[in-house]
Amino acid sequence: MILRTFGFSEFGFLVSALLWTVVLTIIALSGGGIVGFFIALARTSTHKWLRIVAATYIQIIQGIPVLMILFLSYYGLSLAGLQLPPLVAAGASMTIYASGYLAEIWRGCIQSVPKQQWEASESLAMTRTQQYRYVILPQALRISLPSTVGFAVQVVKNTSITSIIGFVELARAGQLINNATFQPFRVFIAVAALYFVVCYPLSQLSRWLERRLHARSHR
């Protein structure tokens, strides 16, 4: 048997697997964004029970490992009789994971809009929906940008966990290449470097947004 060495074609395979990491991140952020948005609204609602349910959901998601969410949806979906490709199980669990964290980030942003904004819009006879739509959410959105982008970095990194259930993204591709080449140090450094190439610009963007936000609010 001739072992392959870690060369250009292997690196190309890693790059193509990076695409799946990006796809999974986009699924997680858009799915988690939609679910998380409604949970954040429930968390800041005027109904006590909605708030309690949303807070419990957030506490549970933030109190269990991503790996367990992954296993539960993987086996849960197959128990329900659905034979789904790993992408769906991975996408579903990353969505659940992201929703729990995004909901909490956005709750903080909604609540950091000054109380006077609520009072002012109420005195203009706005309904609650109008208050959210025209006054609160546009301001909360601006506040939420840095931490949301920062969380995107966490999502990119945590998609690596889906490799454990066999979804072929960057980390799994690294393992596969390693099994063929037996050059673990090189392979995994290359994998880490590819993650870094995606995550570092996002981290810097988040930091830049943060600085800009602070510069404005202190003017």
Binding site: A171, F188, A192, Y200, S203
Partner: peptide, 22 residues
């Protein structure tokens, strides 16, 4: 920056599978 921008799983792989090579 390097640690915070790479996944924990890959860091484990480097320590466990990569280090023996060194």
């Amino acid at each position: 920056e390097i640690i915070r921008n790479t996944p924990f799983l890959v860091q484990l792989f480097i320590v466990y599978f990569g280090m023996p090579g060194l």
